[in-house]
Each structure stands twice: as C-alpha cells, then as structure tokens.
C-alpha cells in the first residue's frame, strides 16, 4: 500500500564517542503515516536521536536511510536561541526554504505567501513583521514550527514542542499535528507521556537503546521491560488520556 511505505529506517545505528555511546545499535523504522511519540529518561538520547536523523550528528556505525525528497522538517529545542538577533518572524519562516533555494536563490512573492499561510495556520499571522526576539517562548515555538513546515516536508521531527507552550495552545498544537499527520509522518519527543499518548500512534522508548512499541497504550511493566525508567504520572487536567490506570 502506498500509504504504508517506509519513510525512514535506522539500521544498527550507534552514535557518540568512546566506550559509552549515547545511542547503541538502534533499529527503528517509521512509515509515512506514523506519529511516533519518543519518551525516555533525561540524558537517555532522545534529542540525540533527532539530531542524528536530521544529519547533525554522523553515526559512528550503521546506516540511516531516509526516503523523503526534501530534508525532514525539524523543530529543535529553543532553550539557547539568540533573542537579540535582528530577524523578523517572516524571515525565520522563510529560512525553512534554504534547501529549496540554495545559496543563490531569491524569495518570491509566492514563497512569502506560503510562509504567511503557515503563520496563519499556527494563528500568529498578525506577528509576521515582529522581531523574533520580541516574542514569548510559546510564540517563538510556533514560528519555528512554521519554519519546519514551510518546505512541505514528508517527515516532521519535534523536540519537546510543548516546553514553553501554555495549556491553551497545547491543545491547539496537538490538533494541528493531528491534522498534519493526515499527510506527513511525525516523530515527537516529549517528557509528558500522559498528554501525548492520546495523539500518537506508537511510542518509542529511548534509553541508549530504542524499543518501538507499536501502540499508544503502554504500561509501567512494559516500560520496565524496555529499560525505560520514567514515571507514568499524568499531571493537571489532561484530556483524553489513554493510559491505563496505575
């Protein structure tokens, strides 16, 4: 089936230096309709996994086979971003077209239009001419999401997209992702398994190794079996949690 073709495959991938690699002998495949939630303890290698997939960290061993025609859209963590840099919201989104434009490319009215459409999709169209540094954390994250999407990628990688986002937008964000997932594959790192499990289709537990659990329901026993010591605690008023009682 066309819909079930594999878009990304990691074969025996090891990342990191020295005796203790950050990721060890990872096997992981993602289909073009997947929505994978990546969970695991801090320092377990979740961010490293994403950075390896987008090509920022070359694997020491193994192969990464990416079947997409465009580079994956990538939303990094924004903790250490320069907030005094002179760049407008619209310019940040346009920078997501670098792969298409190359060094000599010029932006056209159509590019700008597309960028604005994504900003409107994220409900921040009115901020297009604002300086990126003047925005709140949640708004910045939305802008970076637009940057990741403007090139119409076949695969979207999100690193803790809910860090700075208020509860109000969090629902919004997940609705957006669900809609996007109708056409593209999504891999999302999150510390908040309670919230994501109602949106994702499968769960990857990352703690030096990777176990791909092909369901969005996971129990404490299974997490233990995967050597993935995180706690299944849902905090706050989380709607539609599919976690079993514990």
């Amino acid at each position: 089936m066309e819909n079930d073709k594999i878009i990304l495959r990691l074969e025996n991938v090891t990342v990191g230096y020295g005796q203790e690699p950050i990721l060890k002998n990872i096997h992981f495949s993602v289909q073009s309709t997947d929505f994978v939630g990546v969970i695991g303890p801090n320092g377990g290698g979740k961010t490293t996994l994403l950075r390896t997939i987008v090509g920022l960290l070359p694997p020491r061993e193994g192969r990464i086979i990416f079947e997409g025609t465009k580079p994956p859209g990538y939303l990094p963590q924004i903790t250490n971003m320069d907030t005094t840099f002179p760049i407008s919201v619209l310019e940040v989104v346009l920078s997501g077209l670098m792969a298409k434009k190359g060094f000599f490319g010029r932006f056209t009215g159509k590019d700008r239009q597309e960028a604005v459409q994504w900003l409107e999709f994220a409900r921040i169209g009115h901020l297009r001419d604002k300086s990126f540094g003047s925005l709140s954390g949640g708004q910045r994250q939305r802008v970076l999401l637009c940057r990741a999407l403007v090139n119409n990628p076949e695969l979207l990688l999100l690193d803790e997209p809910n860090t700075f986002v208020d509860n109000n937008f969090e629902n919004d964000l997940y609705q957006m992702l669900r809609k996007l997932n109708e056409t593209i594959a999504i891999i999302m790192v999150s510390h908040d398994i309670g919230t994501i499990s109602s949106y994702v289709k499968s769960i990857a537990c990352v703690n030096r190794n990777l176990h791909h659990h092909k369901s969005n329901i996971i129990t404490n026993e299974q997490l233990e079996a995967y050597n993935c010591p995180i706690q299944l605690i849902t905090h706050g008023n989380v709607p539609h949690t599919v976690l079993p009682k514990h």
């Binding site: 920022l56 580079p71 994956p72 997501g96 792969a99």
Partner: peptide, 8 residues
Amino acid sequence: EYIKTHRI
C-alpha cells in the same frame, strides 16, 4: 544548525 539540516 538548522541550515545544516538542509544539507547546505
């Protein structure tokens, strides 16, 4: 970093 992910 982001521009690097675009294989540039």
